[in-house]
Write a protein that binds this DNA or RNA. Structure first.
Lengths: 224, 224
DNA sequence: TAAAAATGTAGTTTTATTTCTACTTTTTGT
DNA sequence: ACAAAAAGTAGAAATAAAACTACATTTTTA
């Protein structure tokens, strides 16, 4: 996947959706926005469903500030969706996780920024200004290099693994045994083993736990 | 473990430590406190270490508002510690997790209240008032019954499992194999297996993933 | 487009884990 | 204080998983 060019048309950000399941977070963010930006409209939602509804209801959203973990699921997909259907809505991921891999993944899938919740709240205002100028905002902590460097590889697991491998990983992640899986997929046990080994090789992980963690975060995160 | 009597001496809450690794959360909570309580002192910390330091530095803390998940680890232990050493500091757990089991566990280990971050922020003010009156505050959502009912059992894993069992679970949770563990602890492989089986029985879990999830959340949470 | 790499699949062998059983030592309940 | 339950430990047998090897098919790539 090639990183898209972010020098899109500049437009003042005035209508914002704040998506986070925690009321405190929404309060905090809204407060800082109101202090720093003149008269923005802020819509608050607490789930991916609500978010989708609001996106349908309002045609002129400029920015979505999106918690990476929300009830209702896979926020990577939401990011892809939004970018596919409303290309000039900016997306700022706001996350409880500091691992740079997360940031990489979201950015590669279309998010325009990534900010950690542990950062000073004021950075939100900064981030918005940066986005407003058509640039990408990624916390220094995440070493923007990491995101630009390394060619154009998509580091998400579904891309790193073959379909079959990913499928098997997903079954492993639910706690199924090799045998369960071989039956479910009508394969030999040894075949499942081979897949598992290849997955582990590709991800450079050598135990089930790591595999599951990788699956859940959709990343190869060294857990040692 | 028997629930302690919470009708302790009433004292106005004026000095509060806010422990949370997310700046937004601290901002939001501080704001709501300042709006609702006259002139409290609010000390903010972002890790369990800082928390311990501030507890040493200030002798007159009335309340600790504590994120259940913080860098530096096991907050159940912190709760126990605080209650053991400063019996009139109140503790309000503030959590991103809605599972009642969490609440139960913290309350049983000495916390005076449990509030979910997804609840309206204003509830913080309410909770503080309740605590100030010497009562326990638990979100209605968690059905206080659950906490009082069911005898006096401590549902935390370290209590449910024997020392050895817990020790082995903790090693399993790091991804170690039975053999690794048997070597590390100088046991037969079969012994490790036996422990593992007993742990699984006790927790009613039948795969490694569930085991690790249980360990990480310090609870038996059915993951199906 | 030919060669190289990746993918989908298994058989066989080696190794690890589970099961079943059992025995001793602690702990607990009455 | 004594029986019952829980905890700590293993050996042997049964079962499952991992490693190694192998071989068609696709897919990439130089």
């Amino acid at each position: 996947m090639v990183l898209p060019n972010r020098q899109s048309k500049l437009k003042k950000i005035t209508k914002i959706i704040l998506a986070d399941d925690h009321d405190v977070v929404k309060h905090g963010v809204e407060a800082i926005i109101r202090q720093n930006i003149s008269g923005p409209i802020v819509i608050k939602v607490a789930s991916t469903n609500e978010l989708r509804n609001q996106l349908l209801a309002h045609k002129d959203i400029d920015l979505v500030i999106l918690d990476i973990k929300m009830p209702g699921g896979n926020t990577v997909d939401i990011v892809k969706d939004i970018k596919a259907n409303h290309e000039n809505i900016k997306i700022l991921m706001y996350s409880a996780h500091d691992e740079p891999q997360y940031a990489v993944n979201f950015i590669r899938n279309g998010a325009d920024g990534y900010l950690s919740k542990s950062q000073p709240l004021e950075k939100i205002a900064l981030a918005i200004k940066v986005l407003e100028n058509g640039k990408r905002f990624v916390d220094e902590a995440f070493d923007e290099d990491l995101i630009n460097r390394k060619g154009e590889k998509d580091l998400s697991l579904s891309n790193l693994l073959s379909h079959r491998e990913f499928q098997i990983l997903s079954l492993l992640a639910t706690g199924k045994s090799n045998i369960d899986i071989s039956e479910e997929l009508n394969l030999q046990k040894s075949t499942v083993s081979t897949y598992k080994k290849r997955i582990m090789q590709k991800l450079n992980i050598d135990n089930n736990i790591g595999l599951v963690d990788a699956y859940r975060t959709d990343f190869k995160i060294s857990s040692n």
